[in-house]
Amino acid sequence: MDISAPVHAGSPVFPGDTAYSQQWCATIAPGCPVNVSAITLSPHVGSHADAPLHYDAEGPAIGAVALDAFIGPCRVIHAIGAGPLITWEHIAHAAQNLPPRVLVRTYERMPVDRWDGALAAYAPETVERLADLGVVLIGIDTASIDPAESKALPSHQVIRRRGLRVLENLVLDAVPEGDYELIALPLKFTTADASPVRAVLRALG
């Protein structure tokens, strides 16, 4: 199952962030055998992995982050309509014997065509408890694990301190609650604060 958000000129971005744009540098024509484009975008457009550099001035760029957290067993947990913060009570029903990766679905239908300033986010205490249980990656179907208006980014600071990885803007609309294999590898951008991912889930076994 492809759980990646579509990326195009209309993809929503955080207010003030760089939207996706594309220009054609070459097009197929007599004397030119290929189409070649140039793209401009924030690495936070669409489904993406944050690098520690995003929330830690001394943190590594995404190209220096090990890939092991981004591939392996995961659990999708439904907390549809939960918010503004996802507390432990919203996910406790599916928190037994957790695999190392947890993705939380909060939308009935993820708004791939508009910005949602009222997005649901993780309560930092929830992230702490997941880390205590051995979770190494958390994901969500909203644009941030912190509220859109937050300046302190407490949940990002928990993952900084606990060494977790994060995926944001996943599309979990069609994904039943349960366990899967996650594959969501970031690009090897050597100086970037995030990277787009093509996130997929596969059935286990």
Rank of each mutant, 00 (worst) to 15 (best):
M1Y: 01
A5V: 00
V7K: 02
V7F: 02
S11R: 03
S11T: 15
S11G: 08
P12L: 06
G16L: 04
D17W: 05
D17P: 01
T18S: 09
T18E: 11
A19H: 13
A19N: 05
Y20Q: 02
S21H: 07
W24P: 00
I28M: 09
P30H: 10
N35M: 08
V36G: 00
A38W: 10
A38H: 13
V45G: 13
V45L: 09
V45R: 03
S47G: 11
A51D: 09
L53D: 06
E58Y: 05
A64K: 12
L67Y: 03
A69K: 03
A79I: 10
I80R: 15
G81Y: 10
A82C: 12
I86V: 15
A95G: 07
A95H: 01
N97H: 10
P100I: 04
R101F: 04
V102I: 15
L103I: 12
L103P: 10
V104G: 08
Y107R: 11
Y107G: 09
Y107C: 06
R109L: 07
D113Q: 11
D116V: 03
A118L: 13
A121D: 04
A123V: 00
P124D: 08
T126N: 04
V127P: 02
E128P: 00
L133E: 12
G134Y: 02
V135R: 02
G139W: 01
G139V: 02
A143L: 10
I145C: 14
A148E: 14
E149C: 10
L153Q: 14
S155F: 04
I159C: 12
R161L: 09
R161V: 01
V166F: 10
V166K: 11
E168M: 13
N169K: 13
D173R: 12
V175E: 12
D179E: 15
Y180R: 07
Y180E: 11
L182N: 12
I183C: 15
L185S: 08
P186E: 14
L187N: 13
K188T: 13
T191D: 04
V197Y: 08
V197I: 09
A199R: 01
L201D: 06
